[in-house]
Nucleic acid binder design. Structure first.
Lengths: 335, 335
DNA sequence: GTGAAAGCGCTAACAC
DNA sequence: GTGTTAGCGCTTTCAC
């Protein structure tokens, strides 16, 4: 097993070049004798041959590997994205290697350096901040495609969802269904994605002439379950009852918020109207009216991979791709 | 940027060895002059130095990379496992690279060959079948640690949950709460994990002198949402009403089963008692009594990494690790 | 049709 | 304290 080209050649008493030509399928092209070919073939069938990827990389200065750096894999949106991107990369002959930052900027920077050392041919990154993004641009010397966070740097290759319009559509759908007042439980509004979702919300409310909307917005520091809990706890410091309708800025925030309700009441009030970003089959477990605004991972992958291909071909950056979102409504369960 | 050791040495007019010693932190040990050191340091500060990992790998015949092959990342259990294993590997200085099989044996075999070519130092695999497992053992020449599927091959390094006892405990808890009859909706019972869960169930029922339990078991071909749907549809071909209590053999099966109920009734009957394997925060969205049997990813990671370490140190296989599961009960929501 | 040789950037062993 | 060298296994180029 795992013979090298040289070992095969020596064992068979033929030259390295000949073996190589056969192994690379160039036998016909160079008119290698059938006898030599079958000698090589049967040797390989017996002992096997595994190309040494490190040697190839060293010579060609490419690894046929792409990197993906995301906040966490245990977030369904990112794990789905990783899955689909891996499939797309493999189709094109690339191995994708994924690592998580856990929203730690230092870790993120380290990961980029690691990817650089390992000489990946290109890198997809969800950057935690504009500084981090600039760090990567400086340190990483091959094509970079940024995902999910729009820091308004028009030069970079970037794929994001159309969060402003998606949020506006979600808000409009809930208002049209008569669900007012409508609260918005936002995680970290420093983060562009969340900020844009909040903006879509306030835009629509302003368009409806609702000026008190700032009272309907609650914000937290991060986007985790715990932040959702804090948000709902804060809500109860300000109000007597559960909100008749609210939007969570992401699924973990929703999980935390509903958890507080269930602890407080022993149940989740069924008459409550719930909006959220990101879709999940388990939203159907809720008996409530729910609206979820889904991000289109397939379109993300196509745009991101296309941008990477252009970058690797040396084209200039394709700039920003803004992917539309789609709304899923689940009607309140009959009783 | 990205100078090689040789370039640095030439630019500074000193020898490659000297530069190397400084870069590797051996300056003190070999008493390199402070002047030389600072010359090198400032050059690196200016132009940077990125080690060429391919060259290092080629020379040392190791990549400081481990592979992980799982069915899918969009399954929360596996994505959590991947996350925690990545963290553990990085602590020990290894990069983890994860790929998915989508339960396709051929793809799985290809992935193992790819990992072999890329010369990963070791491989964690969730094998789709005993044949696949044997294929890997034959083709992969470095340490292998298998996960999640117990094909009763006592020689291999393997980490699994204690599915038989876990399932027995789950079944017992539901029976003790008076939830009979209790149905079991199983996905693919060819797969050892599912078979063992089913076995824990039938064992307990037999222990309670319930002989008709075979009528309470429904099985499907795979373990996906669609299979859960089929199972619940089949249930309704045999019964008039929704099951008063049932156990799903995994979360996707549960999602599919509940989906059918919601379609049929417009709601999920709140008096139904639900058991499932794998824990998820969104199970709290259900107003029902639920019991979920969780797998302990942290323990999996510790045992798996330990087994890998032993393998890399050339020790003999540590054999099978069986990890206990823990039960979470959510009480039916008050009204 | 087949062979030989240089070189990718690193490590390790040895020389001065 | 510093310098030289061989060689990991591959690709590419040129030679016969």
């Amino acid at each position: 097993m795992a013979k090298t080209v040289e070992q095969i050649a020596k064992a068979l008493g033929i030259s390295i070049t000949t073996v190589r030509l056969v192994l690379n399928g160039k036998a016909g092209q160079y008119r290698i004798s059938a006898k030599t070919q079958s000698k090589i073939d049967s040797y390989v069938a017996e002992y096997g041959y595994t190309i040494n990827h490190a040697a190839r990389s060293l010579k060609l200065n490419k690894t046929d590997t792409l990197g993906l750096i995301i906040p966490r894999l245990s977030n369904l949106f990112f794990s789905t994205l990783a899955e689909k991107l891996e499939i797309r990369c493999r189709e094109a002959g690339y191995q994708l290697t994924t690592s998580c930052t856990y929203s730690d900027t230092e870790r993120e920077n380290t990961l980029v350096e690691t990817m650089q050392q390992r000489n990946v041919d290109g890198l997809f990154v969800v950057p935690s901040s504009l500084q981090a993004q600039n760090h990567h641009l400086k340190r990483f010397t091959k094509p970079l495609v940024f995902l999910d966070r729009d820091f308004s740097d028009s030069e970079v290759a970037l794929v994001v969802s159309d969060n402003v319009n998606g949020s506006a559509a979600l808000t409009t759908a809930m208002i049209d269904a008569g669900k007012l007042p409508l609260f918005f439980m936002a995680g970290d509004i420093q983060q562009p994605t969340i900020r844009q979702r909040l903006q879509g919300f306030t835009d629509v409310l302003a368009g409806h002439g609702i000026s008190e909307n700032s009272a309907w917005v609650l914000t937290a520091r991060h986007n985790r379950r715990e932040d959702g809990q804090l948000l709902m706890q804060r809500f109860f410091e300000l109000h007597q009852d559960a909100p008749p309708a609210f939007i969570a800025s992401s699924l973990p925030v929703l999980e935390g918020a509903l958890n507080v309700l269930r602890e407080r009441y022993g149940y989740i009030p069924v008459e409550m109207n719930i909006g959220t970003f990101d879709e999940h089959p388990m939203l159907g477990f809720l008996p409530n009216n729910t609206w979820s605004m889904r991000q289109d991972e397939d379109a993300w992958v196509e745009h991101a991979f296309q941008a990477m291909t252009l970058g690797m071909e040396g084209e200039t950056s394709p700039g920003k791709s803004v992917i539309p979102m789609t709304l899923t409504h689940r009607r309140r369960a009959a009783v």
